[in-house]
Design a protein around this nucleic acid. Structure first.
Length: 771
DNA sequence: TACCAGAGGAG
DNA sequence: AAATCCTCTGGTA
């Protein structure tokens, strides 16, 4: 038994050799494949295949040109498979072939060689990864930073913390003494701690390296320090150095044969948090607070020589590596599962977005079926596709205000089930063979009834595999086994739910605006039909969004009666739906308040508050506003006590006014979504970030700015300061009352039916009270 | 006051 | 580098 961790190729004796990096039960194994050659396809102009073949055969370094029959979207065609000597020959020869007179286009000429081999061989990475005990190591570095952000040209690494799955825990540091900590090891200098790290990874035969932001901080920094101190970071299985790869705007740190997995982008993808510091993510996963320090003070503390404070830094550093390892053990299984399903290497898969993941899966399945991959679109085509948008889901205007005894119906996997039911696929759309059929979808397109579409077929396979796993889960007792199955079904769900978005993704190979558009149009049709149907049966639809509808039964207050009526109606609706589609009874809610589209709150049967879209759910509102809104919602929906709500608000306003609110509760988190210079109109978070940058902090696209509105300045942007530079109590109470707490709370009370005048009175009065 | 860029949520 | 729909804020004229 073995598991495939990594793959690449090298050139040897003028030949490309694929290397497969396995972990076996006894250790490591590198398998070399010497008889696989790079190739790509050329599609000839009609009837010109022989002519094209002759032309191509003349090209230098072309080994062979063979005719092959492939499926291209709607039909079978004859293409030429051009085999070349080395992977680096492909781009050159592809350019030449593309320009030949009888060549319509080239295909599959951009697939990296090692990935090409994995697709063709059907090898699956991370298979058996649960059975083989993978050795996982986490590390983290702390750096001297006397001018704010550290500079790897001059600022040394102070310590490296290390924690692995076999239980070894260390902080390696230098230039200190007299501190007693179990995990501490003091070495000669910076060079020695880097060396120790490299040696440890090698000696302990680590299989997977995990970091938190190692792609863009720890590894680039380590690599540069290593270069300057003449300690190359040679931690690859083959002794190679860690390699920094460009990945769009960011870097990826790649270690040959010992996949490095960065948990920071993964956490961003999986969790919905206000910010994504290691501490936040650790808290989200474990429910425990992690030791934290102000890293801005690192240099100051280090220079002070204060042993107690340095001891705190050492403990903090250790906890970083420990937390990273713990997070990894929690998150990696999902990524192993995704890697197995899509066939991508774990290094790629763990850094892939939804589009990339779906595409990798599709390419594997396409190869198996003899389907020619569509090319990746050029930037120009991407631009054209972006401008061609289409209509999406339907949102029913809510009946504003409070409703009792709500029932929620929703379609189980609406879009996937539509794609399957209607066979929606670029290869089945508007086929010749079914063009005389009477049924047309709402977009005017029809889909083949004879041939099963490629994507519906894959989607069905994903859903069926998931169902099988769910059935197993229902009877499985063993906890370990249950966890494994649950992760797997979740991975399948993620992929199935990404398929519709993939149709509309401008960079997709199998992009089809028509398919995306038709799927959404049918979705609208089904939810609208459902709304009509419930209303014809005595219910009222008070709100609905895309695949869901909240309904109430007028003149009936008994829960049992309402639920019974709803369930029988559900049965009726379902009996008329296509087989793959199902409307489900999602829940009963004693009370709810609907504010606007996509903004509402409910109380469930266990008195739990569910909030959608309102400020409470948004990272770009201060805690004080969010918590107050939450309390007001509880007072109204659960306690049914508007007076209580009013007194909650008054008390919070008093506390704000008295300067009693902590910075933590005043912080607003907003992401920088573009280059700082690219803003036409910059908000307070950009103003705050710019000021902080002048004081030595670094901010770039993608970062989340945590800031507070202080007293100093005229506009809100003027007053915005990054939280690190704000002292407790220095905040603009008027802003927090009038722009945070009151809007969040008044929206609720307004929907409750308080007249605008009354509320203005409340607002003013409360404000007046305090002035 | 009106408009728009920007952000982040829902499904 | 998955889609669209939608609300709301703060800057600007």
């Amino acid at each position: 038994m073995k598991t495939l961790l990594d793959a690449d190729y090298i050139e040897r004796d003028g030949k490309a050799v694929i290397r497969l990096f396995y972990k076996t039960e006894n250790g490591r194994e590198i398998e070399e494949i010497e008889d696989f050659r790079p190739y790509f396809y050329a599609i000839p102009e009609d009837g010109k295949i022989e002519e094209l073949k002759k032309e191509i055969q003349e090209i230098e370094n072309v080994i062979s040109v063979e005719e092959e029959r492939k499926i291209d979207v709607q039909k079978e065609i004859d293409v030429l498979r051009i085999t070349v000597k080395l992977p680096r020959d492909v781009p050159k020869i592809r350019e030449i072939v593309k320009e030949l007179k009888y060549c319509k286009e080239t295909r599959e000429a951009h697939i990296p060689f090692a990935e090409r081999y994995l697709i063709n061989s059907g090898l699956v990475p991370m298979k058996n990864s649960e059975e083989i005990d993978l050795k996982i190591a986490a590390f983290d570095i702390e750096v001297y930073n006397p001018r704010g952000e550290p500079n790897s040209d001059v600022d040394p690494i102070l310590m490296i913390s290390y924690s692995d799955s076999m239980g070894m825990r260390r902080v390696w540091t230098h230039s200190i003494d007299g501190i007693d900590l179990k995990f501490l090891e003091i070495l000669e200098n910076e060079r020695e701690i880097i060396k120790k790290f490299v040696d440890t990874i090698r000696e302990r035969e680590i299989d997977i390296i995990v970091t938190y932001n190692g792609d863009n901080f720890d590894f680039p920094y380590l690599k540069e320090r290593g270069r300057r101190l003449n300690v190359p970071i040679e931690i690859g299985i083959d002794g190679s150095q860690v390699k920094l790869e460009r990945r769009g705007m960011n870097l990826g740190a790649r270690v040959r044969g010992r996949p490095h997995i960065d948990l920071f982008p993964i956490s961003r993808q999986i969790f919905n948090l206000s910010k994504y510091t290691l501490e936040d993510v650790y808290l989200e996963i474990t429910g425990r607070e992690k030791l934290d320090i102000r890293v801005g003070e690192m240099a100051e503390i280090w220079d002070s020589g204060d042993r107690e404070k340095i001891k705190e830094i050492l403990k903090y550093s250790m906890s970083d590596a420990d937390a990273t390892l713990e997070i990894a053990l929690e998150l990696l299984p999902l990524h192993y599962a995704l890697s197995r399903i899509t066939g991508e290497l774990i290094y790629q898969s763990s850094r892939a977005g939804s589009g990339q993941r779906v595409e990798s899966l599709l390419m594997r399945r396409a190869y198996e079926r003899g389907i020619l991959f569509p090319n990746k679109p050029s930037d120009q085509i991407v631009g054209e596709r972006q401008r061609m948008s289409y209509i999406g889901g339907y949102v029913l205007e809510p009946e504003r205000g409070i409703h009792d005894n709500l029932i929620l119906f929703d379609f189980r996997s609406l879009y996937p089930s539509i794609i399957i039911s209607y066979n929606i696929d670029p290869g089945t759309i508007d086929c010749e063979c079914c063009k005389d059929d009477s049924y047309k979808t709402p977009t005017g397109h029809h889909f083949c009834k004879k041939r099963k579409g490629f994507i519906p077929e894959i989607l069905k396979e994903l859903i069926e595999r998931r169902m099988k796993i769910k059935n197993k889960l229902a009877v499985e007792k063993d906890l370990r086994r249950r966890k494994f199955l649950d992760v797997k079904q979740y991975a399948l769900k993620i992929l199935a739910n990404s398929m519709y978005g993939y149709f509309g993704f401008p960079r997709a190979r199998w992009y089809s605006r028509e398919c995306a558009e038709t799927t959404a149009a049918l979705g609208r049709e089904y939810i609208k039909r459902t709304i009509n149907e419930v209303e014809r049966n005595g219910f009222r639809a008070v709100y609905g969004d895309t695949d869901s509808v909240y309904i109430v039964l007028p003149n009936e207050t008994k829960k049992e009666k309402i639920v019974e009526r709803a369930k029988s109606l559900l049965e009726k609706i379902n009996s008329r739906l296509p087989e793959a589609m199902e409307l489900e009874f999602e829940g009963f809610y004693p009370r709810g308040i609907f504010i606007t589209k996509k903004r509402y709150a409910l109380i469930d049967e266990f008195s739990r508050l569910i909030v959608k879209g309102l400020e409470t759910r948004r990272r770009d509102w201060a805690n004080i506003a969010k918590e107050t809104q939450n309390d007001v919602l509880m007072a109204i929906l659960h306690d049914k006590n508007p007076e209580k709500a009013a007194s909650i608000v008054k008390d919070v306003i008093r506390r704000i006014k008295n300067g009693e609110v902590s910075l933590e509760d005043l912080a607003i988190n907003t992401q920088i979504t573009r280059g700082i210079g690219d803003y036409v109109q910059a908000g307070p978070h950009i103003a705050a970030a710019k000021k902080a940058m002048k004081r030595g902090l670094e901010f770039k696209r993608g970062d989340i700015v945590t800031y507070v509105i202080t007293k100093k300045g005229s506009s809100i942007s003027d007053k915005a300061e990054v939280i690190d530079f704000v002292k407790e109590g220095d905040y603009d109470s008027e802003y927090y009352i009038n722009n945070q707490v009151l809007p969040a709370v008044l929206r609720i009370l307004e929907a409750l039916g308080y007249s605008e005048d009354e509320l203005k009175g409340l607002g003013k009065q409360t404000t007046l009270d305090l002035f």
